[in-house]
């Protein structure tokens, strides 16, 4: 496989290159299948009724495919619509808030000189070193005192704070790369600090904004442990917490693997959509945020 990675030059180059391409694409499809087929398999399974999921897979078990699980989860009395909306609201709010605050901070750190700016930036970066998993106990007590426990607002603020170090880092790097002449020209034109940002720099820093939005959204949509710790009543459960109750049989009078499978597929959909739409910014984020020190 690897030997044929690069085009072969010389003599019968073209034919060897073509057969190399065929080999490459075949190998690529096989390797990709290892990662994609299990996911597609679960999508297929999610259309099986629970009885079919809990009996050994056979061709016959696929003769009853239907949307019964989804109907129960989305329009039935057992619906998880509220949980999906909770998750969606928290994820969108986290992504927007993170992006807004990180953009302002990135602008401040990247384009303004002020005393202590280096120290303050280092303080933000300390956030990188603190795993949120380790401070859930003090945060629980703090959110309780702030009346933000068992609240989607509190969860969103918690998610935002832990996404900010990365977001600020990415946005600062973005603003530093903006050519000085552009900002100076705006100043000469008498543009204010904020109108320079919203009118002159917006287009240039858009990729950084997309990157921090994407990372924050994916984090908030899939986060489980924090939501499990801070949310105690079912009306505010996010989707992963609701699914963990399906999984332990706390809800629906016992474990329902049909619901669990379909609910998991519902949880996959926004990740795939958002990633597909903003894919190139993910790679960008990895390069600018993680690789370049």
């Amino acid at each position: 496989m690897p030997e044929t990675r690069r085009p072969v030059h010389g003599g019968q180059g073209r034919r060897r290159r073509q057969s190399g391409t065929v080999f490459y694409v075949t190998a690529g499809c096989l390797i990709s299948a290892i990662f994609v087929v299990p996911l597609l398999w679960e999508v297929l399974r999610s259309f099986e009724p629970t009885q079919a999921i809990t009996s050994a897979p056979s061709l016959a078990s696929f003769s009853h495919l239907g949307i019964a699980n989804y109907r129960s989860l989305l329009v039935g009395s057992d619906d998880v619509v509220r949980n999906v909306l909770n998750s969606l609201g928290v994820a969108l709010a986290t992504a927007l808030l993170t992006t807004l605050i990180a953009t302002l901070a990135g602008y401040g750190f990247g384009r303004f000189r002020f005393r202590g700016s280096g120290v303050v930036f280092a303080v933000v970066l300390v956030g990188f070193m603190v795993p949120f998993q380790a401070v859930l106990t003090p945060l629980f007590l703090e959110l309780h005192d702030l009346h933000l426990l068992n609240s989607l607002v509190g969860l969103c603020l918690f998610y935002t704070a832990f996404n900010l170090p990365f977001g600020v880092y990415v946005m600062r790097n973005t603003f530093i790369q903006v050519p000085n002449e552009l900002v100076d020209a705006a100043r000469v034109d008498g543009a204010s600090v904020m109108s320079t940002l919203t009118r002159v720099l917006r287009a240039i820093v858009m990729p950084g904004i997309a990157t921090s939005f994407l990372f924050a959204f994916l984090f908030a949509w899939t986060e489980f442990l924090g939501a499990l710790t801070f949310l105690t009543s079912s009306s505010v459960y996010t989707l992963p917490v609701a699914l963990s109750n399906v999984e332990t049989g706390t809800t629906y009078g016992g474990v329902n693997f049909g619901y669990l499978t379909s609910g998991a597929v519902i949880a996959m959909v926004p990740c795939v959509i958002v990633y597909a739409a903003l894919q190139r910014f993910y790679v960008r984020g990895l390069i600018s945020g993680a690789i370049k020190g």
Partner: peptide
């Protein structure tokens, strides 16, 4: 705002 969030929640 970023400093405040990091200070309060981290």
């Amino acid at each position: 705002p970023a400093i405040a969030m990091v200070a309060v929640f981290i």
